[in-house]
């Protein structure tokens, strides 16, 4: 019996190690190739059939920081968008969730059903119309950054499910006790509900913060042709889709590393809250 268990454990470890290799391989590749020079005198910056660069070089990173492209600007744009979207989206989601979880008003279920139906339409359907609306306010091309913040925040009220689910589990007795003591709804919200919701606030903000880093579709449409207001996803995707002989691939790898590291570190630090959020959301549907 004991032998069998040890054998089982060994097989498990082998499987886990294999899985880890598969999972880490692309990231290891990304990191290694970012150190391959694109300078034709040293090495080739396009696609090659080996993983480890022959010469270790920081050329790609130097290129990114040299000002030959707007890389720093793109990076800053993305951070600005991500921070503001995270901030406003969290506020809006908290407001909507509290109203729907704690208050009973005419049309409450109707509103929730209506939003559920709205959510069944694909988001890209509305792209040209949104573009036009943004254009009216001058929020495309040069103004794409505030425009993208606006679009990211405007409809975020519909994503209240996880947060409302969390509020539903907070004891109502606390609210009622405070209200008997004469506290208004607003006071209950600010002094009782919000201090108790740290995990869900962090989860909401984290998810909202991560999304703009991958936003290619809408960002490329809104910022079209205006290099200065690209975000990293839009700008660097061009480097991959461009013709290979230009050797932009390693520069993409270097940029990818610079984008991935801060986001990944942040995510890993707040992982606990993320897990809580997705598990709670999954069980409640």
């Amino acid at each position: 019996m004991k032998k069998k268990k040890i054998a089982g454990d060994i097989i498990t470890y082998i499987v886990l190690v294999l899985i880890s290799i598969v999972w880490l391989f692309p990231f290891a590749g990304l990191a290694l190739q970012s150190f391959r020079s694109y300078d034709p005198k040293v090495e080739y910056g396009g696609m090659v059939d080996y993983l480890i660069p022959k010469h270790f070089s920081l050329d790609n990173y130097r290129f990114l920081f040299s000002g030959q492209t707007n890389f720093l600007r793109w990076y800053l744009n993305t951070i600005i968008i991500a921070v503001f979207v995270a901030l406003f989206q969290t506020i809006i989601v908290l407001c909507v969730s509290y109203a729907l979880s704690r208050m009973r008003f005419a049309g409450r279920t109707l509103l929730m059903r209506f939003w559920l139906v709205l959510g069944m339409f694909p988001g890209f359907l509305t792209m040209i119309c949104l573009y036009f609306l943004l254009k009216q306010f001058g929020l495309t091309q040069a103004g794409a950054v505030p425009g993208l913040i606006l679009v990211g925040v405007a409809s975020s009220g519909m994503g209240y499910y996880v947060c409302k689910g969390y509020f539903d589990t907070l004891p109502k007795a606390l609210d009622e006790a405070a209200r008997i003591d004469g506290a208004t709804r607003a006071r209950v919200f600010f002094t009782i509900t919000i201090p108790m919701s740290k995990p869900i606030i962090i989860y909401t903000a984290l998810v909202a913060f991560m999304a703009p880093w991958c936003d290619y579709v809408f960002a490329s449409y809104v910022a079209f042709g205006h290099d200065e207001s690209f975000n990293v996803a839009v700008a660097m995707t061009r480097w991959v889709w461009t013709n290979d002989y230009q050797g932009y691939f390693t520069r993409f790898c270097a940029g990818g590393i610079l984008v991935a590291i801060p986001v990944t570190v942040l995510f890993m630090c707040l992982q606990k809250y993320y897990v809580e959020g997705v598990t709670g959301g999954a069980v409640k549907g």
Binding site: W23, L24, F27, L30, G256, A260, V263, T264, M268, Y274
Partner: peptide, 15 residues
């Protein structure tokens, strides 16, 4: 394993 969630998809998927 969680690395694939943390790294922005446009980086990992394009690679």
């Amino acid at each position: 394993l969680v690395l694939t969630i943390a790294v922005p998809q446009f980086v990992s998927l394009l690679y």
